[in-house]
Design a protein around this nucleic acid. Structure first.
Lengths: 158, 158
DNA sequence: TCATATTATCTCGCTGAGCGAGGTAATATG
DNA sequence: CATATTACCTCGCTCAGCGAGATAATATGA
């Protein structure tokens, strides 16, 4: 169908998808907040762990400053954040030997486990769902998410 | 982790999609925080406006309590949140005449405009992208997002 | 080499978002 | 009609995150 002329009804289907994405992001945030409360943390702490794990997966060295920038915190807030995570034993600080100004961050294995315990079933549900997609459909989902990221961040992923 | 019987390569493609979604949600949160800072608000205030607009779109009456529940706030925090939004002129309180305990909330038109000014280009970018999808691909994206919401919220949408 | 700028992080003091506890109307229940 | 429940609000407090500024490590230029 999809008459290209941009009738209100047609735009609706696409806007609906965007609204859907927005609701998903809010719900994701709420689950993060729950996980945070469950382990004596704050939503920002969980977001920080996610960023650190993403960096680890991507092979990017995780420094204090980079983390703060990703989370939109200033340096004082970043220091406080890392203090909390370190106090809870979820991350470890270490000096970069190449540039001793920088603080490298590593996520403790136990923190990863806790995350998988909590988010595992949810993420598994999504993976399960994706298995019912054929190649073209799965590729479409990835293409949309990459595009959404680009639209949001003004930068594409890798 | 080791999910069910899929080959490692297969699980990778699906997990990649899920990680992509997670990154998108974090980026969405950052844009919300920027919008908030730009207008003297806080991230929670923006999330609240989104919830109120979603409720309006769905035709659900928006009450103080319901909003607080959606955002994971307790009653004190909810009251403070609505105080802030009302002080900024973004929402209006009114008593429900059916049940005078309840406070109904309506979003001011100006707040909607501000949101569209800021998020319009980003959302338009996503809509544009979606227009390049054929019907089956677009449907796949919606199906994934609905499923993701269900996995996150433990409830499906409508 | 040594002064100077820049970068990366930390410390200090403060503001205010959000919590727990408790209060006050309005509505339900026996 | 007393009592419970619901929906919201007030009060006092804690601590996340901010701005300002300090410190230490690295670049830059004469």
């Amino acid at each position: 169908m999809s008459t290209a002329g941009g009738s209100p009804a047609d735009g609706g289907a696409e806007l609906e998808t965007v609204h859907l994405l927005r609701r998903v992001t809010i719900e994701f945030g709420l689950r993060q907040a729950e996980f945070a409360a469950l382990h004596g943390m704050h939503p920002t702490d969980v977001r920080a762990l996610i960023c650190l794990l993403d960096a680890a997966r991507a092979g990017t060295p995780a420094t204090a400053g980079r983390l703060g920038a990703q989370l939109g915190l200033n340096s004082a807030g970043t220091t406080a954040l890392i203090d909390r995570l370190e106090r809870l034993g979820h991350v470890t600080r270490s000096r970069d030997e190449r540039d001793r100004r920088q603080v490298l961050l590593t996520v403790d294995a136990r923190a990863v486990e806790l995350g998988q315990e909590f988010f595992g079933p949810t993420l598994a549900g999504m993976v399960e769902l994706l298995r019912t997609f054929d190649d073209r459909e799965a590729a479409a989902v990835r293409r949309f998410l990459r595009g959404a990221y680009a639209a949001l961040a003004g930068a594409s992923l890798e």
